[in-house]
């Protein structure tokens, strides 16, 4: 009988938080058609636009941009269970020369990540069949949201296992 495998536990005092999101590529293509570069610049950094070959690739940039928007939404799910929202360009997906992607946060999003104890991020993007998706994983200090968001009366330890 095969031995059951358990997911590796994070190091002591740390925990994982995960975020996931999907975006219909057609919706991003429609936005590019309707608003063009104004849309692209409001949501995506210069590096993201360049990595997605916008505006050179025209509508063909939609798949790549949709995956990047899904990553931004997935980060928001990790950072903002209370409905807080960052400027979209403060969450950037960077593509390394190897093709792998990483996250870079700035401004209010970076401050928020520090406030809630995020130490490092991992991100994975995909698109297929008209849908783009992203998963992000954050390694965080094991504090409770109640404490992190400033409404707690003192240090608290989150003993729950869920990511909300």
């Amino acid at each position: 009988m095969a031995a059951a495998m358990r997911a590796p536990a994070p190091p002591a005092g740390l925990r994982y938080r995960a975020g996931i999101d999907v975006v219909a590529v057609e919706e991003v293509a429609a936005s590019l058609a309707a608003f063009g570069d104004r849309y692209a610049r409001r949501l995506f950094t210069a590096a993201e636009r360049s990595d997605s070959r916008w505006p050179v690739a025209g509508p063909d940039a939609a798949e790549s941009l949709a995956a990047r928007f899904a990553a931004k939404e997935a980060v928001v799910k990790v950072l903002a269970p209370d409905g807080w929202a960052p400027s979209w360009t403060e969450i950037e997906v960077r593509r390394r020369p190897s093709g792998a992607c990483e996250l870079a946060l700035s401004g209010g999003a970076a401050s928020r990540a520090t406030d809630v104890g995020v130490i490092s991020w991992a991100v994975s993007l995909t698109h297929h069949g008209g849908v783009a998706a992203a998963v992000v994983l954050a390694l965080c200090e094991a504090r409770s949201w109640h404490d992190e968001l400033g409404s707690g009366s003192g240090p608290q330890v989150d003993r729950g296992g869920g990511d909300g």
């Binding site: 919706e27 936005s31 309707a34 104004r38 949501l43 929202a85």
Partner: peptide, 25 residues
Amino acid sequence: SHASVNVMLGIEDEFDVEFPEHLLR
């Protein structure tokens, strides 16, 4: 959230305004 960005851009076009950073919430 994605649709809300389109709404924001559509409102800007319809009323000839630009939403400043502090209203992009």
